[in-house]
Every structure is written in structure tokens, then in C-alpha cells.
Computed example of a mutant assay.
Amino acid sequence: MNIRRLAPWLAAVLLCASGHSLGQTGDVQLASVHAAVARLADGELQVAKHADRQVPIASITKLMTAMVVLDAQQDLNEWLTVQPRQQQLGKTAWTRMRNASQAKRRDLLHIALMSSENIACDVLARHFPGGLPAFVKAMNSKATELGMRDTVFFDPAGLSPSNVSTAADLVKMVRAAYQYDLIRDVTTSTYHQVTFRKPRYSLQYGNTNPLVRSSRWDVALSKTGYLSEAGRCLVMVSKINGEQTVLVLLDSLGTRTPVGDAGRLRRWLESGDPGSVAVAARNYERERSAAYRADAVSHNVTR
């Protein structure tokens, strides 16, 4: 009997027995501070690393934004006017889109998801019935509907560190987003050209997740995120061992670290190989984990 191949199964059994508040599941090595892996079909967690810790989620937010836009059933071919951001969140939202030009709702949704265009999210929210406040309220209502009890949204782009969730909650959000054909299609596209009007010009955008361009991965949904408070984040759905699997990786060092963790998780699920993590990424993970623990202690003391 190959014990290494039993490692993922044994970890899943331990996870079910003890809940998902674990520092590390099994012996898989991850640089991300928080992680969750689950079967898409039933949402059952196979890996959980601090999966119930509430943390900033940066642009992973945009999956909820997309669901709210699509649930409203507004005309995707309607031309919307690009305007400066309404919320001032203390974060830079650089854009190549020209102020006062127009783009179709469908294109703005595409580049918000695929290329993490922040201003596009603000434009989508401002053209929602009731405007930005109603849009954010709808985001939080959708989170409640999905059973995301530890999730709060403050803005539609994820620029606010007050947009918080847990890895376990994000599994629920990713599973819900997967049910939307358009979200699956645009988050796994590699490039997209947007044609604007008034004035007329075009811009080319690329996917922020390099794994969608890899022949070694079968990615069915993808979203990346980054804020200094959130670290590098990645959520995706990919076929592993012939089964669609949800991967949630939050707060890691450098753009390549979540990608490396995704590879380590796939190898571990397929063969039991725990992998290894670079020293710099491991040190970052330890420092961030210590900071989260200190914040939790401070919060409990001051309550």
C-alpha cells in the first residue's frame, strides 16, 4: 500500500473530525498564510490552513461584484460612462481608460474580472439601480444568501482593506460564481480588447493569472488579488485527479508564490508529495501569521 498516496485522504478525515481551524492540514507545505481546498461538487474541505481567520481579500472581491451585476440582469451591451472613482479609499486606482469615454457593460465586467481593472468596478456599481450604496448593500446581501457569515464588503473593487472574508467563506463564493457561464468564460480568457467611444479608441488587456495560459493546467475559473494588507491572493477552479477542485490561497509573498502553492497543492492531492517552500516565502508566512495572532490577542483584550 502506498502511504504517500493516502496522505490527502487521511488529511481530509482529520479535517472532518477536527473542524477547519487548522494551522496546516496534512504535510503539504504552503507559503500562503491562509488556504482552503474543496471539491467543487459539494464544497467539502480537503485542505484548510487558518481557513476561518477573517482577513482582507483585495480583488477577490470582484467575483462578488460580477455576480451582483449579472443578477441584476441589466443590458450587457449598454454603454456606460467612465468617471473618476466615487469612493476615496486611500488607495491608488490607476487606469488606462480615458475619463468621460464610454464602454459596454460586458467589456467593463470582462476587464474587471480578467485584468482586475478597478475603475471598471466603480463604473459598474454606479450604473446599478440605486448607485454605489445600493450595489455594496447587494454584495453583502448576496454574501448572506450564500452563507458567508464572516464576510463583509465595503467597496466593489476590493481596494478597501475593510473588504474581509475567510478562506472557507471564499470557497462558497467561488462555488457560486462557477455557476455563471460568463464568469467562467471571462476569468479564463487570456486577452481581451475593449473598444471605447466618445472618443473612439481601443485597449488590450491580459489575464493576471499566468496559469490560464499554461497547458499544464485546466483552469475553469480564476481571480487574483493584491493589497499590501492582503498580500498576494489567488482563487481558482481547476481539474485535479479528474475532479473540479476549488483552490483558495490568501496572503503570500510575491506574484509567483500563490502560483507555486497551487502547484504544491495539486502535487500533494495527486501523489502525497508535500513539496517545499522558499526560505523568503516561509519567513514571510511566519511573520504574517505572528502578526495575525498578535492582532487577535489585542482585539480580545480591548473588547
Rank of each mutant, 00 (worst) to 15 (best):
M148T: 05
A112L: 10
V28W: 00
A103F: 08
A31V: 03
R53Y: 11
D261T: 01
Y226C: 00
N241W: 04
V237T: 04
S298T: 10
F135P: 07
G90D: 03
T208N: 12
P129L: 06
A262T: 02
D27A: 13
A103D: 04
R303H: 01
D42N: 15
L10P: 09
L113Y: 02
W94P: 06
Y284W: 11
L146H: 08
D185H: 13
T188S: 02
Q193D: 06
R256C: 01
V194P: 04
M139C: 04
Q102Y: 02
L265M: 11
R216S: 13
R288K: 14
S59C: 09
C16N: 10
W79E: 13
A220C: 03
S289G: 14
L10T: 12
S215A: 14
H34Y: 08
Y292W: 09
R105G: 07
P84K: 10
T190R: 15
L249F: 03
A35T: 02
Y178F: 15
G43A: 07
R213W: 03
A294G: 07
V171I: 07
A177H: 07
L109V: 08
A125E: 06
Q29K: 13
T61L: 00
P210S: 05
C233Y: 00
V186P: 03
H192F: 13
S214L: 04
V82I: 15
R98Y: 05
R288Q: 15
S162F: 05
K104T: 07
S160C: 05
A230P: 09
T187D: 05
E145W: 08
W79P: 01
A51E: 05
T95L: 00
S215V: 09
Q54K: 14
R286S: 15
D42S: 03
M1E: 15
C121L: 03
L227G: 01
V237P: 02
I183V: 15
V279N: 12
S101P: 07
V171D: 06
F153P: 11
V259C: 02
N77Y: 07
W217C: 08
Q244D: 15
A66C: 10
Q88P: 03
G263M: 05
G23M: 10
H34Q: 09
A93F: 00
G26L: 04
S160Y: 01
S228Y: 06
A281N: 14
D75P: 01
L124M: 13
P274D: 11
Y178M: 12
V219E: 06
T25K: 01
D218H: 12
Y292K: 02
G26Q: 06
L108S: 13
R85W: 00
W217Y: 10
L203Y: 02
F135D: 08
G272E: 11
D251R: 07
R264H: 00
E285Y: 10
R105H: 04
N163I: 03
G275T: 05
D75K: 01
A294S: 12
L249I: 03
E78M: 04
L253W: 05
M97A: 14
L159Y: 00
V174L: 06
T255N: 12
A278G: 14
R53C: 10
T257Q: 13
V219D: 09
A112R: 02
E78P: 01
A41Y: 00
A36V: 09
Q179V: 06
N140G: 13
A167T: 06
G260I: 01
T255Q: 11
D251A: 14
H20C: 14
G272R: 10
V248M: 04
